[in-house]
Design a binder for these strands. Structure first.
Lengths: 212, 212
DNA sequence: CATTTAACTAGACAATCAGTCTAATATTTC
DNA sequence: GAAATATTAGACTGATTGTCTAGTTAAATG
């Protein structure tokens, strides 16, 4: 039985190749991310996003079933975006592990500064809004935090193996401690329009790490 | 010149004495606090608050000039409420200073647990929402955090004087560190519907305090 | 009782929300 | 060209938003 022969190719228009730069769906996601990191989910109307990109409403509901589905797509995209950022820094074997963590923190701080501290962290924003959000968001947000924590913890393990922190350090706990507090720092940085909360938190966090 | 004589008493109906328990204004504030700590400012409609209290819409704008004015009143009330809670614990001379801080943390955690971790901190909620809020909120929120931090720092000073923490500890910095991270912990506790983030953060915070 | 002032209410208002729907057009394969 | 699908276009709905005005009721004084 032939299987590598195109038995009955579908007629009609095939799905087009997605282009990262011009794809309408991608444009909507990008604009959505900008607005949601600034104002959150509930305070943002779909029309505002549409207006920015210059796309009519019909297109939105072609690409997304609902505002909820749009939010879920944003969470996933942002989670991956940040995971890549983490990997880029924490996997940089040119630096000792602790310095990699510092590099990540600096990068994240610079990212906030670049937008004049108007944009925060999408995951943190939505987490705080959970009371008014579709319940489907909860697990995704939790999973995202857990994922980031795991990457952070892995780097702490390397630091432990390199003798930079104490041999009996609980890296999972320390990573959780970091992310819990870091999200608070992002919140405050947005409120105060300043990098100080980020630097203060990161400074005392690193100082608090148990030394060998 | 007589001043204790009621020279020209105003005619007409006098402003009534506000009664803490039945006052409509107070009821609106109380209900508003419940909803806003749960869902935030933008996601909450005035109608929802009105519905809870059983007060018609027209009355709202008799007591408050706008939703914004309502929000400002809530911030002030919540700031004072929490300041009292802080004073009650941190001023308790029956306990050594560090234990007072622990007592406050436990109280705050129990408060969240009592509402099944659905309600967060009003100030933290609004801080995160700042991007979509009237700019008049920003200073009030900042001031509230500063106020809480000052009270926390004062207790740390007592701890330092009692030799519970290092003599050269920077109490202002430590208090800032605590509140930055604590708000993050409240956020996570709400997301995870669990006391764990609160306990984990508080645990490592206290462990990180520089010992004499 | 009449007047004055305050407390409170009823509902209209325009604006905006998320979401739906129908029709038209663009793009590709057969 | 015909067929099939992808995408666009935007009017429309019904619900909800914050705000406001005009009115009624309550309590005091002269």
């Amino acid at each position: 039985m032939h299987t590598d022969q195109p038995v009955a190719r579908r007629r009609g228009r095939p799905p087009r190749q997605r282009n990262e730069l011009t794809d309408t769906r991608e444009l909507l996601l990008r604009a959505g991310l900008e607005v949601l990191t600034e104002k959150g989910f509930s305070a943002t109307g779909i029309d505002e996003i549409l207006g920015r990109v210059g796309v009519p409403k019909g297109s939105f509901y072609h690409y997304f079933n609902s505002k909820e589905a749009f939010g879920l797509a944003l969470i996933e995209g942002y989670g991956r975006f940040f995971a890549r950022k983490l990997d880029r820094h924490l996997g940089n074997r040119a630096l000792p592990p602790l310095l990699r963590l510092h590099a990540f923190v600096d990068d994240a701080r610079d990212g906030m500064a670049r937008h004049a501290f108007r944009r925060g962290c999408l995951i943190g924003n939505l987490g705080q809004e959970m009371g008014a959000l579709p319940e489907s968001f909860r697990d995704r947000l939790r999973d995202t935090f857990e994922d980031w924590q795991a990457r952070f913890s892995a780097c702490l393990v390397e630091a432990r193996e390199a003798g930079e922190i104490a041999a009996d350090a609980d890296t999972d706990q320390l990573a959780a401690f970091f992310w819990i507090g870091w999200e608070g720092a992002v919140l405050r940085a947005k409120l105060e329009k300043s990098a100080k909360p980020l630097e203060l938190f990161a400074g005392l966090f690193f100082a608090s790490l148990p030394r060998g």
